[in-house]
Design a protein around this nucleic acid. Structure first.
Lengths: 238, 238
DNA sequence: TCGGACGGTCACAAAACTGAAACACAGGCG
DNA sequence: CGCCTGTGTTTCAGTTTTGTGACCGTCCGA
């Protein structure tokens, strides 16, 4: 846990900053700490990004060309009623008054330029920990298969399936790349990991186990064997 | 909202500060803003006050005679995990490093002396507002389980259960995120606290104790083990 | 100060899973 | 048809992961 972002997988941070140099520095440092970073150079772009995808935290410059930071903050509060996205306001040192107003406007914290990266990171962690709005991991589906990453559940036609850890990861990978054929080596690389070395035939065995687990009585086999090439998640037709 | 404290009636603030002058100044200003104030001059007294009555927010001096601020912070986190009391750490300016560590140790924010009252109030409001968004008090329920945070009671099918403190917090966390699978590390982070380091297997033992406590004779196990992944509050079917 | 409750570790038992090997089977080809 | 290649299937022993009971400090209230 030391240094890197804790429980949450890789929190998405939206950096709204018009100074390119500062934005670049932030991206560099944040990514080094395990955050995913999205940038917006002005308020308008920030709102667009927000509409596309809700980040886990927003780093918002107070002074922005066009739509002001405070206005962006209001929009965030208004729109995202479902999830409370923490906002950190970034202000120039002299504007203590404004910063205070910013907080009362809806920001959760503020930090004055210049700031140390350590301080910023500590604030961010504190907010994320508190918000603890663990981003809902995805739901995957293919044909009549459904996989829920958060609850680690897989169903076919509503029927609950039981997969071992390896079969789960294997199917997860397949569902992320439906219909595509993967060689055994590719599967070993992606599912087992690049440093594990096991016999390629091991894949066959797990494919077999996966088939047994997901193909119920009278259901079509959704795992396709491509001779001399590999396997794919696919139905026979199509 | 202008000027006075927002929704919450009159939030109770525990001021832990050994400098009498500063403490008095804080009390005066905070009460003027509509807070109720309780004082503690050292760590020991702080713990006593905390045991008596849980405040809505703690203002905690880093340097204290006797029990240190950081220790008090740990105690708060350990004891009052059910209600998440925001803590603001007050430090001397030079101790930025320590302050940062303090944050990751469990404080939610920190402020360096000397600070302006406006700034402090803004920070406090931000924390209180956030704390309030997640209704800490209230009832949680899942399946045939019911948990009442206020009275600290848990029932299953109307039958009263007896849980130890850790089991209670564990179940509370699970009930706040039903069906979701958590790795042992995640549980340690969320239930034990981010800075406690114990063996991951400790989670197993408490899961076991939790199961024993809540699974009565002939009742389904609502704690699901997901091999190689973690645990979830869930029924076998769903 | 004593006794009980509680928390963290450990050791061992029980389950579940894994990888490899062995053999069966299918299709293409000379 | 017999051979060769590639895949399906079964089996099994070893390994990993989890369940469980026991133990031993520590803390706290009686």
């Amino acid at each position: 846990m030391a240094g890197s972002v804790s429980a949450m997988a890789r929190p998405l941070v939206l950096v709204v900053e018009d100074e390119a140099a500062l934005a670049t520095m932030l991206r560099y440092n944040l990514e080094k700490q395990g955050f995913r970073v999205e940038e917006a150079a002005d308020g308008q772009e920030a709102l667009t990004r927000l509409a596309e995808r809700a980040p886990d935290l927003v780093l918002l410059d107070w002074m922005l060309p066009g739509v002001s930071g405070i206005e962006v903050c209001r929009q965030i509060r208004r729109r995202n009623a479902t999830r409370d996205v923490p906002v950190i306001m970034v202000t120039a040192r002299t504007e203590d008054q404004d910063a205070v107003r910013g907080l009362n406007t809806g920001a959760d914290d503020y930090i004055t330029k210049p700031f140390s990266m350590d301080t910023l990171l500590a604030r961010m962690r504190a907010l994320l920990r508190r918000a603890n709005t663990v981003p809902v991991k995805g739901q995957l589906s293919f044909h009549d298969l459904t996989m829920d990453l958060a609850s680690h559940r897989v169903q076919r036609n509503g029927r609950m399936l039981h997969l071992g850890p390896t079969e789960f990861r294997l199917l997860e990978f397949f569902m992320q790349h439906p219909r595509r054929v993967f060689a055994r080596e590719e599967l070993l690389d992606a599912v087992w990991g690049p440093d594990i070395h096991v016999e390629p035939r091991t894949v066959d065995v797990h494919i077999r186990r996966l088939r047994k687990a997901i193909n119920g009585d009278g259901e079509v086999d959704v795992v396709r064997t491509v001779r001399a090439a590999g396997y794919a998640l696919d139905t026979e037709m199509h």
